[in-house]
Design a protein around this nucleic acid. Sequence first.
DNA 1: CTGAAAGCGCTTACAG
DNA 2: CTGAAAGCGCTTACAG
Lengths: 340, 340
Amino acid sequence: MKKPTAIRDVALAAGVSTATISRYMNGKFHKMGADTRLRIEKTIKTMGYLPNDVARSLRSTKSNTIAVILSDILNPYSIAILQGIEEACADVGYTIFVCNSNESMAKEKEFIEMMLAKRVDGFVINTTGGNDELIAALADEVAVVLVGRKISLGAVNSVAVNNVQGVFLAVEHLLARGCTSLALLSPRIDHVSPRIDRVEAYRALARRGKMQGITSAVHIIEKVAVEPVAEILKALIRQRRPLDRMGIIAANGMLSLAVLKAAKSLDYEIPRDFLFMGFDDTEWASVANPSLTVIAQPTYEIGATAAKRLLAGLGKDAKQSQAESLELPVKLIMRNSTLI
Amino acid sequence: MKKPTAIRDVALAAGVSTATISRYMNGKFHKMGADTRLRIEKTIKTMGYLPNDVARSLRSTKSNTIAVILSDILNPYSIAILQGIEEACADVGYTIFVCNSNESMAKEKEFIEMMLAKRVDGFVINTTGGNDELIAALADEVAVVLVGRKISLGAVNSVAVNNVQGVFLAVEHLLARGCTSLALLSPRIDHVSPRIDRVEAYRALARRGKMQGITSAVHIIEKVAVEPVAEILKALIRQRRPLDRMGIIAANGMLSLAVLKAAKSLDYEIPRDFLFMGFDDTEWASVANPSLTVIAQPTYEIGATAAKRLLAGLGKDAKQSQAESLELPVKLIMRNSTLI
DNA sequence: CTGAAAGCGCTTACAG
DNA sequence: CTGAAAGCGCTTACAG
């Protein structure tokens, strides 16, 4: 843990000023003596000099660092987004701080402040949905891109998914498979925008002509776990009319998994007892029993796109550039859970 | 993007010196006038002062930051470890940089240097296995804890898993299920320590009394994907003796998934055609078709334990404290893939 | 109980 | 082509 060699040490050893070393380190060779340049190169190599980024950041007010604040690091959906962000950042020499608010708005706020204190160059946030004002204000001061979840006020950049399209594809598919009774299962809405969007899109569809004569319901699952989901399933099965073919949609990946487990625990067979599909093409969807029909979201793309936008905007003044709200398309992947 | 308020602004506004503000920010209230203290508190609140951690780090040569270098961020195993690290760090106010070397030793080296330049307080590394010398040297300079994978030289802290026990449990289980023919499938060894350990443990077992009369093989999969795995499966099935009951073990989670998919593509039925089990209790193992018997590794624990050790060691001189090599126990979770 | 001053390791006008 | 010097925003002995 001895003190690392600093620019002054190198300057002394090479017989030049620290300014010259600094210029060398920053690639400003244009008007530099070839001899000094070579001498510096050697000195740096032999001394193993590694510039102190902390000092650099302090001087330049630029840290080449991005804060990523996830609302649930346990969710494969968040992780896929993270992967996209990581790769896009690494490609251009940016490093990411990863924080997990764990769906707590208080933690999210703390992390935002911590990251602000660390003087990150920008934020990518998958928000809990509980800090809209804070985030809107944040976006006035520093570059921010929201991923997956938007906020309801202010104009903040976001990259998300077309949820109306997703719900439309799901409903259309289940109707095409002959369903006469439909149910959408969603986790607690809280203030999470995609949940709001999906439920609203579903209800809008239910009011339309296509769903005439179809029994339709929305169930909000307070706690995503096997037991509560099993209760809902039992009720749904019980309420079924004699000749109904029932179709169930789970509004996210964690919930899909819970439905599969609950069905198994109740000895319901999918798709015999009900057709089933979910959102998110998680890793297990294709090997599940039965394999799961899903609305696939381009999660990696969401992250990569968001990071690229953030990085591209870093040069400019935050307020100059208009905030953009990007919606990526989803697609339906059909598997055995709706094959009957 | 206006300049944030600095300590001097606060000092001026509160009518004290920057030293006093600094003391306040660092909680050194012991001999501070209650009046000044209150005045400072108000000034800070109204001005919204947030100390610049970059400057703090420069002065204190302490960044409250940890580098996490993963060899494969796409692997759920790595992610589970990451979760453990994140939580342990967040608990004590540390923030993590996340890097993905993507199994490239060159990238791993670059990241180590980048993180060193950022003056992180410590490293948690899931190494590619190709930078043993570099990492051994690194550990002489700064706090390092290896996770999952060890290096072969030098004394570097590590938290991993008892692979001998894991292989033993797997083999014992398959023998108990009546297998008369066993095969271990492993990804390319490269220099990855758990792969070496598992293959060696398996071979050691094969030489012992218990496996007398049992056909036994090790197959190294050059590229983990469905097709190459399918080829191996076909060969294995072909070679089976008439009354053999075959058991296959996959040495990691990604490979298990490939085996399941390959078996499906070949219309082999597990466990009818062969009993199958894997390492890593991934999220999908319990819902897979068939559900998968596994050797579960405490991945989250590996990460959390490593981070806690790292953090605990930060105060001390790196060389003072003896390097420790911790091996966490694994356990067998039985499911349908070996139930016959 | 508080302040003046030095210094952490860089970068960058400014001057030559 | 290169250097002397100021300054980024803090912290911390030292002095009082």
